[in-house]
């Protein structure tokens, strides 16, 4: 079975998830894996793709491929598909790979299954398991088409090194008349520090915090233990905190060592954003709140009294 796998990179720098697309292709029983690289291809990337299971590299290069462009990448992927004629086209369910696969599937008018976690490849019909509702619901579906497009949920198919080498094959795309009209005109790098996605401890507040001022108690504790402050959607909708602090289905996905949920009830759409946390501590007035039931640890009571007491205790111990 021939499978085409999109490799995500930014101006030649491979994304962490790139090789997961190859692992996904391997899991489908591919006998040949054609890795698609649009734009800059270094000898390091060529070697790494071979080592991670690619048997060939379809390389599309030209004036239009210097920077990322979803339309151009979609057309490039479609050209590779036309050349290889594979049984499936795969990528990762990330912002970029997801949209490029959708472009290629749209060009082919073929079905696309997004956020796939398992596949049973039959002769015609493939049985796929995919994630919906940001992880709160699992769907069993059938995928029926001569060429199947699938994106894998991140971190499900992990690459194993130990492959061989991959030969580079040039693919000459036929660009549409409008290719290149979408352009990246600016890139802004934000100062890095402790962020919601990297912090070991995240202290999150929900409706129970009550006001923007109420968050000073969370900020204070975060400052003492190098944590980051997050929040629920009720909080961003009320304008108490910016949306960039929101955890959940339509916010950030995080996996800290400890997640401290203060005044958060534990709705499904919040839970999917922090369920990968190693440990969860719930602070809530309601002993029966869903968050309390699902947490590893809980303190029952008013967060406005409990958080300052924790901060005071830390100060006392640190001297």
């Amino acid at each position: 079975m021939d499978i085409v796998a999109l490799i995500e990179h930014d101006r030649g720098e491979a994304a962490d998830v790139s090789f997961q697309a190859l692992a996904f292709a391997q899991s489908l029983g591919a006998t040949a894996i054609h890795a698609v690289v649009v734009g800059a291809l270094s000898s390091e990337l060529t070697a790494a793709l071979g080592a991670n299971g690619a048997t060939a590299i379809c390389h599309i290069d030209g004036d239009l491929t210097v920077d990322y462009d979803p339309e151009v990448w979609g057309e490039a992927l479609a050209a590779a598909v036309a050349q290889v004629n594979p049984q499936a086209v795969v990528g990762l369910a990330t912002d970029r790979s997801g949209e490029v696969l959708a472009h290629a599937a749209a060009i082919a008018d073929a079905p696309l299954a997004a956020n796939v976690t398992a596949v049973t490849a039959g002769a015609d019909e493939w049985a796929v398991t995919r994630i919906r509702w940001g992880g709160a619901l699992i769907e069993e579906a059938s995928l029926n088409a001569p060429v199947r497009y699938l994106t894998a949920a991140p971190h499900v198919f992990m690459p194993q090194a130990g492959g061989g080498t991959a030969a580079v094959v040039a693919v000459a795309p036929i660009w549409s008349a409008t290719a290149g009209r979408t352009q990246i005109v600016d890139r802004i790098t934000l100062a890095s520090g402790i962020t919601l996605t990297t912090a070991a401890v995240v202290i999150s507040g929900g409706r129970g915090v009550g006001s923007p001022e109420g968050f000073t108690k969370l900020d204070e504790l975060a400052g003492l233990i190098s944590g980051a402050v997050g929040c629920s959607r009720v909080v961003t909708n009320a304008g108490w905190r910016p949306h960039s602090d929101q955890v959940g289905q339509t916010g950030k996905r995080i996996a800290p060592e400890l997640y401290i949920a203060c005044g958060i009830s534990g709705a499904t759409q919040h839970w999917v954003g922090m369920m990968a946390s190693k440990k969860v501590l719930a602070i809530n007035t309601d002993r029966d709140a869903n968050m309390v039931n699902k947490a590893d640890y809980a303190v029952i009571g008013d967060l406005h009294e409990i958080l300052p007491a924790i901060s005071a205790e830390i100060r006392r111990r640190k001297g």
């Binding site: 401890v201 002993r287 303190v299 029952i300 409990i306 007491a309 924790i310 205790e313």
Partner: peptide
Amino acid sequence: TETMVLGTGPAAAPAVVDLL
């Protein structure tokens, strides 16, 4: 998960700091 209740109100603060 078996939830371990560390305590009620501000009196639970030392138990939380022990956990940290």
